[in-house]
Design a protein around this nucleic acid. Sequence first.
DNA 1: TCTATTTCGGACAAAAATATCCTAATTAAA
DNA 2: TTTAATTAGGATATTTTTGTCCGAAATAGA
Lengths: 144, 144
Amino acid sequence: MFSKACEYGIKATLFIAQKSLHQQRVSLKEIASEIDSPIAFTAKILQSLARSGMVDSHKGPTGGFEMDRTKMDTITLYEIVHAIDGDQIFHGCGLGLKQCDANHPCPVHEKFVVIRENLTQMLQNTTVYELASGLDIGLTLLKR
Amino acid sequence: MFSKACEYGIKATLFIAQKSLHQQRVSLKEIASEIDSPIAFTAKILQSLARSGMVDSHKGPTGGFEMDRTKMDTITLYEIVHAIDGDQIFHGCGLGLKQCDANHPCPVHEKFVVIRENLTQMLQNTTVYELASGLDIGLTLLKR
DNA sequence: TCTATTTCGGACAAAAATATCCTAATTAAA
DNA sequence: TTTAATTAGGATATTTTTGTCCGAAATAGA
Ligand code: FES
Ligand code: FES
């Protein structure tokens, strides 16, 4: 469904958010360990998320990643997925036609758009804060 | 969402089915042309679908691929996707945890299973015949 | 200022997915 | 029986995704 990069990106963001709820900055090393991801690859993804302003990064000793409390409410899974995987999953044809066009539909168009729309709505309605909270109270897990 | 192999496999199957509605066998060359796919790669996928009994293949002059009318009713998109892409999309964790387990859920589990279930139901409820019919009356398209 | 620690970013490497090439096997028809 | 057409299948190539390595830049604290 999502690329590995996207899975890591979501998990990293949620972990950063959860720690930021307690004013704790987390290092790349800690993140990769907690979400069970390859360090250097995770670094690339975090750099990209930092550049697009979803998380804040700081260099040097005591450096690391953190996330504004207010951003946790405005940033949804949709923004993260879109930033990393693009919009193919949101607007692309399920059978790979160059253009998904209701006027020239592929055989699965009618049924596929429903699924695609469900997914889009779900991602748009799910904030980072909501998921970070579930993590924080131990309701959900980021590995195993 | 689906792999390229799976997209080609679905389109090829639907084209074969549509032609079989008129007792017409179709060659690999014709299939690849009609669904706009690389010939040799499509051949691999069709070999696999033939081995798993979803379509019938015949060598030699007048050879090609065809599909039993009765199979069009029993084979759904689910079978095709499962045969080519496996069951990761139907049972795998949305965030890539090794095991999707409701008792040890990832942060998106609750919301993701709904989407996954919708997709599974849709694919299981969609027969090859239904889609081949839409193709046959010109309601839907396999390329462009 | 110096040092240790951290992210940044470019180059590189490995693995997986996608795609191609070529020969063998089969088979219908001349 | 010969020929031409077709799928089968193994080997190889290309592209994309995933993952690694290493030095540069920044920075907090000694
Ligand atoms: S045209 Fe294929 S999903 Fe819309
Ligand atoms: S545990 Fe992640 S989707 Fe079920």
